[in-house]
Nucleic acid binder design. Structure first.
Length: 505
RNA sequence: CGCGGGGUAGAGCAGUCCGGUAGCUUGCCAGGCUCAUAACCUGGAGGUCGUGAGGUUCAAAUCCCACCCCCGCAACCA
């Protein structure tokens, strides 16, 4: 089956932060998860390179626009590459293939009378370069940021009407309870849809914003950034010319943070409907990463977690694991260096140490030979079967925040279970008694085989760790799949590995 | 009274829909073990479950009511 996974395209005005890293890692985890189930996954990410803020930052930097955008977009590509993100396509909205699709959609909607020109009157603050609502102003009617009175100006613009589709969208959401996940966000969108929707202004006069896609039917305007950016999801799939478009789109997943719920769950489905495409398969919404103690991350507080610094300290994969495991489904989640270290230590102790203790034991006492032809006791089989089953159950689920968290949880549980099993059976005692060698081999085999299952299950979260463990078990020769069969470890020799998670100090 | 989410041991969370001895990870203390990465196993201390000498109930973290605090959305700023 074909599947399509997208991240939002990131605004190039700033540098990549932990939130960008999270959404993109989540998408990468989902891709690998689906690939293990045998699905053909197309994963896209990219950068959003238009709009007023980019324009300003570029002007302040004194760079030619293409140089500026290349540089900013490169920051995102660099960190994603460093994190080993296996994206299939990196879209840049400044690229011609994307612009062409946007223009053809605009032309089509305009020709069909769905885009209309009208005048807009509002209070405009020249400092903010934005229209203000009365409620945005302070008690004296001044802009709170610039302490200046906004001007009443009249401006012509192009608008796309949302209201005719409001009822349809409400019904769609009610009929598809899994369309927006977690469901509390669906509830929030339904609330937004209780009131009539204003027309969406989809143009900006070039006198204010020049960095954008020129309207094909009026050269004095560029396209509003959201109208442009959302279309990346279909321009990436080469809408209009790709014969596989429908099969990817039918199983598509948009990942997004909660701040961009409205564009993705109101503007976008309505735009799609108007274009003649069914809504995206599923929207997976997540919260924010905040500082420890629930305070917002800020440079002045010194609690900003920079993905590059974390990677320097502990490597990519512990960061991946932490981000997946620690994000709460229904609320924002804290992150800090000390919390990350805590997560790292858990991996080192429960998983890294488990691998090392059993492998060194086999290396020393069995000349590294993995025991073959062992007939396990019922209690051994129970361990392997319960671990297999917990993994198989998770892999049956559709991708979701819950699924990702559950996967990471059940891996930790399996590690804990194995450490306990190992300790209870005291193989270091068995090996000293000739008459107990058979039992020794059973215990060791069970632990090694469980480790193989854990390594397989952990692949989407920590691909290199998965391969390292399998390699140490001489089991790295097959393609990883979501099949978890107990007692399937082949013959061979173990290889004593370097520690997966060295002591951090 | 705009909308949504959250407030449970020092920290991070689960439990709340379907009321019934308050759980998990981490940190701290003690013991054990010794195969292993300052690891592993066992036990312990630590909580008036935001507030209300509120309501319902034999019984409330969980259901109802009121209030307080934090976060996000309330826009032509992603």
């Amino acid at each position: 089956m074909k599947k399509y996974i997208t991240t939002p395209i990131y605004y190039t005005n700033g540098a990549p932060h932990i939130g960008h890293a999270y959404t993109t890692i989540l998408a990468d985890v989902f891709k690998k998860f689906e690939q293990m189930k045998g699905n053909d996954v197309f994963f896209s990410t990219g950068t959003d390179e238009h709009g007023q803020k980019n324009q300003h930052t570029c002007e302040a930097a004194g760079l030619p626009i293409d140089v500026f955008l290349e540089k900013q977009s490169g920051l995102f590509q660099a960190v994603f590459d460093r994190m080993g993100i296996d994206y299939d396509y990196f879209v840049r909205t400044s690229g011609e293939p994307h612009k062409e699709v946007v223009r053809s959609i605009l032309t089509d909607l305009y020709d069909r009378g769905m885009i209309i020109k009208k005048s807009y009157e509002g209070l405009y603050c020249e400092g903010c370069e934005q229209f203000k609502k009365e409620s945005d102003l302070d008690e004296n009617g001044l802009c709170p940021d610039h302490k200046k009175a906004p001007k009443l100006i009249l401006e012509e613009n192009y608008f796309f009407r949302l209201e005719p589709y409001r009822e349809w969208l409400r019904e769609y959401i009610q009929l598809h309870p899994d369309w927006i996940k977690p469901q509390n966000y669906a509830k929030e969108v339904l609330k937004m849809l209780e009131e009539p929707l204003d027309d969406l202004c989809i143009s900006r006069p070039k006198s204010r914003v020049w960095l954008g896609i020129e309207l094909p039917f009026d050269k004095d305007f560029v396209t509003y950034i959201w109208f442009d950016a959302l279309i990346n999801y279909i321009s990436t799939l080469k809408f209009g010319s790709n014969p596989d478009f429908n099969s990817y789109w039918a199983n598509s997943y948009h990942l997004l943070a909660k701040d961009i719920l409205k564009p993705h769950c109101i503007y976008w489905p309505i735009m799609l409907k108007a274009i003649g495409i069914e809504p995206v398969g599923k929207c997976i919404v997540h919260g924010y990463w905040i500082g420890e103690g629930g305070v917002k991350m800020s440079k002045s507080l010194g609690n900003v977690v920079d993905p590059n610094e974390v990677i320097d300290m502990m490597g990519v994969e512990p960061l991946r694991f932490y981000l997946i495991n620690a994000m709460s489904i229904s609320s924002d989640s804290p992150i800090s260096i000390s919390l990350l270290k805590q997560g790292y230590k858990q991996l080192a102790n429960a998983l890294g140490n488990l691998q090392m203790r059993v492998i060194k034991m086999v290396d020393k006492n069995l000349q590294g030979e993995i025991p073959s032809d062992v007939s396990l006791l019922a209690e051994d089989m129970e361990v392997l079967e319960s671990v297999s089953k917990s993994f198989a159950d998770v892999y049956k689920k559709d991708i979701d925040l819950e699924t990702a968290i559950e996967l990471s949880d059940c891996i930790m549980q399996a590690c804990n279970k194995l450490n306990m099993y190992f300790a209870n059976n005291e193989p270091w005692g068995l090996v000293k008694d000739e008459t107990k060698m058979e039992r020794f081999k059973q215990v060791v085999y069970t632990t090694l085989d469980a480790l193989r299952l854990i390594a397989t299950a952990i692949y989407p979260l920590m691909p290199n760790v998965a391969h390292s463990i399998l390699k140490s078990l001489s089991a790295d020769n097959e393609k990883l799949t979501a099949e978890f069969n107990p007692k399937a470890l082949g013959v061979g020799k173990v290889i004593v590995p370097d520690p997966l998670f060295p002591y951090l100090g």
